[in-house]
Design a protein around this nucleic acid. Structure first.
Lengths: 242, 242
DNA sequence: CGGAAATTTGAGACGAATCAATAGCTGTGG
DNA sequence: CCACAGCTATTGATTCGTCTCAAATTTCCG
């Protein structure tokens, strides 16, 4: 199926950071220069390994990645997904270690983040991004701790939708998703069989469609209301754009 | 039962931060001054509410607190526990909002953290502390996503033991715990009934004792090995003390 | 077209939830 | 010093959500 191209071709990573904080021309230029220096990691490859040294803060330019923990007996937990515009390894530590593996779910291109010294407004965008990452970790904990399969799936898809809206990769009704049902299962503490059955039930009750790598939410607002879910808010000052 | 007093009476909060990074005399003095300005919150009271503005970074001086999320229908999830020496609201944002409620599990005393401007070595301790907090959130996610009841309980108790060792509130074999089985259930995504039955099984297999508000781990190292659990490591440079 | 990956279906088992009741503990006041 | 209230812990019986295992079937992609 052919879909209309996005209105303009601002790279998603740039679009997200610009939405998190007002950026001046120097900041945008620094980001665009950094994007040009991105390297590509093939799907299924590990970008960082758990316990390894972090090279320094980086930015997802394109593709989807996931933070992954593997238990000794092979059980796999996807901690969180990283989308274009998300930061990796942004922390105040001198010699940080990676707290989890980072795996490319699709081909991923990634670059070092421009220094805030070159463009001070970036500091604010980075701080906002780190806070959002925290917020999504807390969401993930409540999903896993207190929600059933249907709620977990709805909550995760709403979160992905919200985040992809921010970087321009989703429209009002849905988004392209490069994940398998097994990935969803590994993120939500379920089995792929149960994810499959739960998705079927949600399709039957017309909550969503998922075909050909695209998720369509019939009524995102209604779904969010049913869950009692609200968009992540991490700062007193209003967030621009979306 | 009477237990011998700790070797010296360094406050746990100070002990933890000193273990996270080398502190000079000025830093210690600044911390001690701050501890003196602590205020007390009664057990069961909310310290911060979800979505409320954060006053600025704070430090738990004594008592246990927990970050809490409540779903619209009343389901409760304890995101994490905060122990003496833990930081709250340490983030780079200008007008941060609280991402979860913070509730006092016991009487809690809490103070503002000294500025790093007054004592630069504190910045390193704070950064280290923030990184550890992240590490424990990831642990919590894998617990909830991929572990069964017995593993969740063992993992949480080992984490608490590790953290209480760092601030001097635990000895090699166990620690005082001011939590009920229902608190454990709310943290681990279980019911208190099931926590009770699981604890009984663990007592029967001589993994632990839990009586009179004190947890004794029969063999912490063996339990950790069984889980494949390793102490949190967040920095390339070695951590002092413990 | 062929082979691997992903999705779908079915039957049965199991871990944890639920509901309901009892027993133990702690502090409080008469 | 005992009686009582209100938590907390414990026990039992049953139900339910999700897992497990195994086998199609469909989709994707070279």
């Amino acid at each position: 199926m052919i879909r209309p191209a996005l209105r303009c071709d601002v790279p998603p990573a740039l679009r997200r950071l610009a939405a998190l904080a007002p950026l001046d021309a120097a900041a945008v230029a620094a980001l665009q220069a950094a994007l040009g220096r991105a390297i590509t990691i093939r799907a299924h490859r590990e970008i960082h390994s758990e316990g390894g040294a972090m090279p320094g803060p980086q930015l997802i330019v394109s593709g989807w990645a996931a933070r992954v923990r593997i238990l000794p007996d092979g059980r796999r937990q996807l901690i969180s997904f990283l989308l274009p515009g998300d930061l990796v390894g942004q922390c105040g530590q001198p010699e940080p270690l990676s707290l989890s593996a980072l795996t490319a779910m699709t081909d991923v291109s990634i670059c070092s983040v421009p220094s805030t010294a070159d463009a001070p407004p970036l500091a604010s965008a980075y701080a906002h991004s780190v806070a959002l990452e925290q917020a999504y970790l807390l969401e993930q904990i409540t999903r896993l701790g207190r929600m059933n399969a249907q709620e977990r799936i709805a909550s995760l898809l709403l979160e992905l939708h919200e985040r992809l809206r921010l970087n321009g990769m989703a429209d009002a009704t849905g988004f392209d998703i490069p994940l398998t049902q097994e990935h969803i299962a590994d993120a939500l503490g379920l089995t792929s069989v149960h994810v499959n059955r739960t998705l079927q039930a949600m399709r039957r009750s017309d909550d969503l469609r998922w075909q050909g790598g695209r998720v369509t939410l019939t009524n995102p607002a209604a779904l969010a209301h049913w869950l009692g879910r609200q968009p992540a808010r991490v700062s007193g000052s209003a967030m621009r754009g979306a």
